[in-house]
Design a protein around this nucleic acid. Structure first.
Length: 488
RNA sequence: GCAGCUGUAGCUCAGUUGGUUAGAGCGCCGGUCUGUGGAACCGGAGGUCGGUGGUUCGAGCCCACCCAGCUGUACCA
């Protein structure tokens, strides 16, 4: 009816979300398994926390407001307490550790994979639901814990087949803080400008040294030469201040800075550098002063895993995958729940983005997934017999099913099997039945054999890659076909 | 958030200076076809032409505003 038509629901997905099919799920599963194996090898243990936490546990109430940050999906419980979908896996871990502090062996080494949610504008490679795979060490103040995490990330990316195509970059927030203090941006009243300076440094990769110089000073035009496009307001530093920050980004590093934070950060970086070098990871884990990373809770070393290869998109333009993970030390997070500070450090892999990169490199998801063996229904009143055949195949561990659609047309059943990617079909009509036989048709071989055939009548007549066998040999013969195509 | 571009069927698109009942290819469903998957032929479903308002005898087309998508930029705990 017309009314139904008007009111009919439109099937659609909210933006920034995605359904995932068989191929992608299999690829992700394979990748997660590889990561998990490396993490366990390092002695980390599995942990799962729920999707939902109290908003205050996530630390995402807006300052001076009685409601959560808009970037977090939030809702109120019956008792009016705010709940939120987790936006990363670190804050829930901190809550878990604080809640079970006395029962856990410390340092507590754990890993977890799961979906996280951010209510932000989606873009290419950016979703509102995505998966992270984290590993954290809680209760270890030593930078050996930081160095270990970095080396584990390198091993993980190696295990995924990315040897030589990435770098784990390491910096230290204390170094940055020391520089900021040295140029007179210490103290609470300069928090806003510090943030602007950090953001400018963070853009080093994208805009280069001159771009950072502009951003530290008055600001930067989207198109600097023509002074056109969007204008990004800068931090308003004077020349001397800017040069000090810029010096830090260049070979040789900052000099003439003499304060406690800078000294401590530099010492930590040096120690991480020597630990990494001693273990033979110096080619993969490198100190990089431009890494800023998560502007809020990091307190010491910060890490970023960056892919260094370039790929061309459909239009032939280069695409950089860039950062596929990051982390750092967050000594204050667990302490929010306790009377004492609790040191912690961790790393988070962006599973979806990394999977996209691996797929592009052909290191993931290239393996064809075998469809089920399809038993055709030739005779409507012998469904029980066909189901018995299916059952025999399944008992032998072979993925199989009987055709459940309208069986009147054999061609349709064949089309179905073809579309499902069935390696073969089993056929038993009255002729075969009387002879105690079944026909097995190898669809993969058949497709190859028939490539030369152009005429449909001939195609039908030829019945390529089809053979008959005793019904009692069904399982054995199907297995042979599967083995032939490496689906055994 | 800001800027630019784009909105016609599930997808890719056509649609004349504004003129009757908005089309094609692919895909989908069914049939030819109750013994064979690539083909062919026939039939069918599927559109408030992104939305609202305006100009006009008449708007898919012109105008205004809004919405959505894409790209860039900003933000990203």
């Amino acid at each position: 009816m017309a009314k139904d038509k008007i009111n009919r629901l439109k099937a659609r997905l909210p933006r920034g979300l995605a359904d995932r099919g068989e191929t992608e799920l299999a690829a992700t599963r394979e990748m997660l398994e590889t990561i998990r194996r490396v993490y366990e090898l390092y002695g980390f243990e599995a942990l799962e926390t729920p999707f939902i936490e109290y908003t205050d546990a996530l630390g995402k109430f807006l300052p001076d407001q009685d409601r959560p940050n808009e970037g977090v999906f939030s809702f109120q419980d019956d008792d009016e307490q705010w709940l939120s979908l987790r936006y990363d896996l670190t804050a829930p871990l901190a809550r878990h550790v604080a809640e079970h502090f006395d029962a856990l062996a410390k340092p507590f080494r754990s890993y977890r994979a799961g979906w996280v949610f951010r209510n932000e504008k989606p873009g290419p490679g950016r979703f509102r639901q995505f998966m992270q795979f984290d590993a954290d060490t809680v209760g270890a103040p030593t930078v050996a814990a930081d160095a270990e995490i970095c080396m584990m990330m390198a091993d993980t990316l190696d295990a995924l087949g990315l040897n030589g195509q990435y770098v784990i970059k390491v910096n230290n927030r204390k170094v940055l803080d020391g520089v900021l203090e040295a140029i007179g941006l210490g103290g609470e009243e300069n928090a806003g400008r510090r943030l602007t300076v950090l953001r400018a440094i963070d853009k080093f990769d994208k805009v280069g040294i001159e771009g950072v110089r502009d951003l530290l000073g008055e600001g930067r035009w989207e198109n600097p030469a023509a002074k056109s496009g969007d204008f990004t307001k800068g931090a308003g530093l004077d020349g001397a201040q800017s040069e000090m920050v810029l010096a830090m980004l260049q070979p040789g590093g900052a000099s003439g800075i003499d304060n406690a934070a800078f000294a401590a950060g530099s010492a930590e970086l040096a120690e991480i550098g020597s630990l990494v070098a001693a273990a033979g990871y110096a080619d993969r884990v490198k100190i990089d002063p431009s890494v800023v990373r998560g502007l809020e809770y990091y307190t010491g070393p910060v890490f970023e895993a960056e892919l260094t290869f370039e790929v061309k998109d459909e239009k032939g333009r280069p695409v950089r995958f860039g950062s596929v993970g990051g982390g750092g030390r967050y000594d204050g997070l667990v302490g929010r729940f306790r009377s004492e500070p609790v040191p912690a450090t961790g790393f988070s892999i962006g599973v979806s983005r990394l999977a996209a990169a691996l797929t592009t490199l052909g290191k993931l998801g290239s393996k064809a997934i075998a469809g089920p063996v399809v038993v055709l229904v030739m005779d409507r009143d012998r469904v029980a017999d066909y189901m018995t055949m299916v059952s025999r195949l399944r008992s032998a561990g072979i993925r199989a099913e009987m055709y459940l659609g309208n069986p009147k047309n054999i061609g349709n059943q064949m089309k179905y099997a073809d579309k499902r990617g069935a390696p073969c079909v089993v056929i038993q009509g009255s002729n075969e039945r009387e002879a105690g036989e079944v026909q097995i048709k190898d669809l993969i071989e058949g497709a190859k054999a028939a490539e030369a055939i152009t005429d449909n009548a001939e195609w039908r007549e030829a019945r390529p890659a089809q053979f008959s066998c005793r019904e009692s040999e069904l399982v054995e013969k199907v297995r042979e076909v599967l083995a032939r195509h490496d689906f055994g």
